[in-house]
């Protein structure tokens, strides 16, 4: 997915050249109308004035960004200080998404490698097994995770039953539960690009290293890892980006103490207490972070492609 997305697909033929505009027009209209224009409108809304019962007043204002970054006291006339509340929420989200990415990498890399080194006819089945859960409703998966991890849930029951622990471990409503939930949500995104990279890897390089008395670990570290790095980076980005803005895992598994960006944004649009310009501003800041990451990623992939040729 990532590799194809970067290059835009392979060579084309021109059988339907005359019809091109008509073929592409529906997708242009729908996606410009329901994806591109809305994002531009969101940018505009983030510079408007909030209406007290949800919605906006069409007056230019920097209040949303000001509220995000600065604390001006209860009445707004104190000298501006840095407001840490929202920065802290973003920081926690970045931290949680990073931890989830590392967890996915720690489990996803060996899994992807293992699958890629199976006999060719078995690989598709392994990949299929890893991807099935991804297509199950994310909400249901997250609820299932919560059910499994509860204090009185089957996991704790089992651990107590086999005598490993005496009292239930509290997992739900901790940072770790959120990380586990995010890991569970996006693991296939880690496995698939690494799998693709290892599958393309030429194992005679490893064999050459081994013939020259490199240990297995050295071969892995010095030969294999550099060769499959683009796949690893792609996997990390593909897990990190959706984790950063996720809503369900932190909401259901994290509880109120483990608030993340997604919940902060959602709150601004629910009911009358919300603040639409502030929600739009928070979304813009999230989108900016994500786009910067994707840009770095695209450049890195382009460089890797150049080196390969």
């Amino acid at each position: 997915m990532a590799a194809g997305a970067a290059s835009g697909g392979s060579a084309t033929t021109d059988t339907y050249r005359e019809a091109r505009t008509w073929l592409l027009l529906p997708s242009w209209l729908i996606l410009a109308g329901l994806s591109l224009i809305p994002v531009c409108l969101m940018l505009i809304y983030s510079f408007l004035t909030k209406e007290f019962r949800g919605g906006v007043i069409w007056d230019f204002s920097l209040a949303a960004y000001d509220q995000f970054f600065f604390d001006r006291g209860l009445f707004g006339d104190d000298p501006a200080q840095i407001e840490w509340t929202y920065i802290a929420i973003f920081w926690r989200s970045i931290w949680q998404a990073s931890a989830a990415t590392l967890l996915s990498l720690a489990i996803g890399f060996p899994t992807a490698y293992f699958i890629a080194t199976r006999p060719e006819r078995n690989r598709a089945i392994w990949v299929f097994l890893i991807t099935i859960p991804y297509w199950v409703n994310l909400l249901i998966r997250t609820v299932s995770m919560k059910f499994l991890l509860r204090d009185q849930g089957p996991l704790n029951d089992m651990l107590i039953g086999i005598g490993l622990i005496d009292t239930p471990i509290h997992i739900v409503n901790t940072n770790f539960a959120v990380q586990l939930g995010l890991f569970y949500s996006y693991l296939p995104f880690m496995v698939l690009p690494i799998y693709a990279a290892v599958e393309r890897y030429n194992f005679s390089l490893s064999e050459a290293a081994a013939d020259l008395y490199a240990s297995k670990f050295t071969t892995l570290r010095r030969i294999l890892l550099p060769a499959v790095k683009p796949g690893v980076v792609a996997g990390c980005i593909l897990v990190f980006v959706p984790s950063l803005g996720s809503f369900l895992a932190p909401d259901l598994l994290g509880g109120a103490k483990n608030f993340m960006i997604g919940s902060l944004i959602e709150e601004q649009f629910k009911g009358n207490a919300g603040n639409w310009p502030f929600g739009a501003a928070a979304s813009m800041i999230l989108l900016t972070i994500v786009l910067i990451l994707l840009l770095i990623f695209a450049r890195q992939q382009a460089r890797a492609e150049k080196e390969a040729h």
């Binding site: 997305a5 329901l34 994806s35 809305p38 409108l41 803005g245 997604g262 959602e266 979304s283 994707l294």
Partner: peptide, 17 residues
């Protein structure tokens, strides 16, 4: 585009639209 923009941002943007 819908794959690159975080889903919650798409949600906010569509609501605003």
């Amino acid at each position: 585009l819908p794959l690159m923009v975080p889903e919650i941002v798409t949600a906010v943007a569509t609501l605003i639209f």
